[in-house]
């Protein structure tokens, strides 16, 4: 529990720090840290697969992509225009208020009898070893029970890939030079 609270505190600090910092490079690096903290958080919450992915993606790929974009755009510092972020404040406060109000009677954190943990999930834990025979339930659900979602996920990646290639890539003209 303690670890949990400390991590949350760190997460909050880094997030707020990112919103204040004007040096883009710094923002990206701290985002990397934020992401790593998230990954740790996921481990604490028993989501090892998610933690692994978050570490690889958030800390790794995302940060590298952002750094490459930074270097390509050649910008280091966010030019701050004197824009009054009232809109932003309202939106984020509205979001916060709505969620705070709405979550206040949500099933409590880590409650084993919360509906989320009662209906579908136990089925996976109980049946997957017989039906699929793989110890990692996450993999079973990911690849088989909800394999269609994963197919979608691959397609999303594929879409992003062709998007980036079509935007940045030098496709057939490569042979000319």
């Amino acid at each position: 529990m303690i670890v949990n609270i400390i991590l949350l505190a760190f997460l909050l600090t880094t997030a707020v720090y990112i919103s204040r910092i004007t040096i883009l490079f710094g923002a990206v690096m701290i985002y990397g840290i934020y992401s790593l903290l998230c990954a740790t958080m996921f481990v604490v919450l028993d989501a090892v697969d998610v933690a692994f992915t978050e570490a690889a993606v958030g800390t790794g790929i995302s940060t590298i992509l952002m750094l490459s974009a930074l270097s390509l755009t050649g910008s280091r510092i966010e030019i701050t225009h004197k824009r009054k972020p009232i809109m932003a404040l309202c939106a984020s406060l509205g979001l916060g208020a709505a969620l705070l109000w709405g979550t206040s009677d949500m099933p409590h954190f880590a409650d084993a009898s919360a509906p989320a943990n009662l209906h579908v999930a136990p089925y996976y834990l109980e049946e997957s070893s017989e039906q699929i025979g793989i110890p990692n339930v996450v993999t079973s659900v990911l690849a088989s029970y909800r394999g269609y979602d994963t197919l979608g996920e691959v397609v999303v990646i594929f879409t992003a890939g062709i998007g980036v290639i079509s935007l940045l890539g030098r496709t057939t003209r490569r042979r000319e030079d």
Binding site: G152, T159, A160, S166, L167
Partner: peptide
């Protein structure tokens, strides 16, 4: 399935961004 809707929503959205660009 509501989550599946999200996944395909993102497929269509991402490809729409590409198409617009």
């Amino acid at each position: 399935d509501v989550f599946n809707v999200f996944v395909f929503l993102e497929i269509s959205s991402l490809s729409t961004y590409v198409l617009v660009s």
